[in-house]
Design a protein around this nucleic acid. Sequence first.
DNA 1: CGCTGACAATTAGGGCCCTAATCATAATTG
DNA 2: CAATTATGATTAGGGCCCTAATTGTCAGCG
Lengths: 207, 207
Amino acid sequence: MPLLLLKDLPRYECLLEAAKRYPALEPSACEVFLHLLRTGDEAFRVIEQHFQARGLSQGRFTVLMLLCDKTCGESHALTPAQLAEKAGVTRATMTGLIDTLERDKMVLRQPDPADRRQITVSLTPRGLAFLNDLLPEHFRRIASLLLVLSEKERRTIVRLLGKIAARAADEFPAAPAAEPAPPPPPATPPRAPAPRRISRPRRSRAA
Amino acid sequence: MPLLLLKDLPRYECLLEAAKRYPALEPSACEVFLHLLRTGDEAFRVIEQHFQARGLSQGRFTVLMLLCDKTCGESHALTPAQLAEKAGVTRATMTGLIDTLERDKMVLRQPDPADRRQITVSLTPRGLAFLNDLLPEHFRRIASLLLVLSEKERRTIVRLLGKIAARAADEFPAAPAAEPAPPPPPATPPRAPAPRRISRPRRSRAA
DNA sequence: CGCTGACAATTAGGGCCCTAATCATAATTG
DNA sequence: CAATTATGATTAGGGCCCTAATTGTCAGCG
């Protein structure tokens, strides 16, 4: 749950003090930065707290939401790769999330008859019911948290957050999203790949 | 690194659409919520990216900062419990962070002669040098990210974030901070605690 | 003194997220 | 058509964070 660390934010005077030692430190920027991380973390905690009481994690919640889709009501199936892409996690991580969800009977893995490399994941009735039971409180929490701001303030903060996010995205772009695989094929096969490991027979996940 | 999940934020029209299905959903509140988490995550990514290039994690960074203290320059020792408290993680987690930092020779564990239950953790010269080498770029990133906002905008966003954080703290208070231990002592010793596990001799951490 | 309870740090084990490697199955191509 | 390459899912192993034990030590008390 925690991400932020630092129970108490440093006071502004401390930042001013520290700035004397580090010329690169902009006290006002740091202040915004700390508040942003802190508040994001608090907001996250508010929903995580609710999820946790129902035995759910943010990651698994996202998967359920994606499967439920915007047209929430009728579930439509997706492949793990699509889910990973939409959720912004690696496929390996998605495998783990689906594992847990399947164990809890929230989703179902089904082989794709057309392409045997693929499988499709879909929501079970149980998963859909669980989600529909969960969502009202989820939305209530979000509303309760953010309606402290006036409508005008909400418009303002969305605008300012958007500016920061845009800056982050183009000044510090995320890594190439992984997955695309490495471009540099070694011109020369330097050495044998070394005996990796004894490969065991692939266990069926259902076993 | 990722926390947010959801690569693309739902559009506002989708929120309006979904609100028809879920009366509790306040589109405007949800919009702020998603932007907040997204932007917090982006900001986190910006510094995490830098840390990662230097083999550091946010948690370990926080420990180093705490040891360096505001008076950065002269290190002063703290106990793991104090560090955990200030950093807002459990003591068990702090043990792990210190383990890694000690392995990397960034900090030193020393026994407390007065109370043999305690140890103190202090920054090594190597740890201090590492931190001082790291910080300028750290602050540069923060400044670069947040100086896209004008001074007035920075004041505004700090105020609005503060409102949200305050609301979170008093509407959805965090759990009792753990550690304080459970109050209910069982009046009757119901059953033997069951043979937990064979206890192995406690290995010295230095071994 | 010997107990008992509180406290400090740690270990054990679980979840989530990552990267790198592995396996199975297409698709492509010489 | 066989060999290579690409693609999809998974496994293996690491880090961080958690909760629930477990061990060692201190402090109070009969």
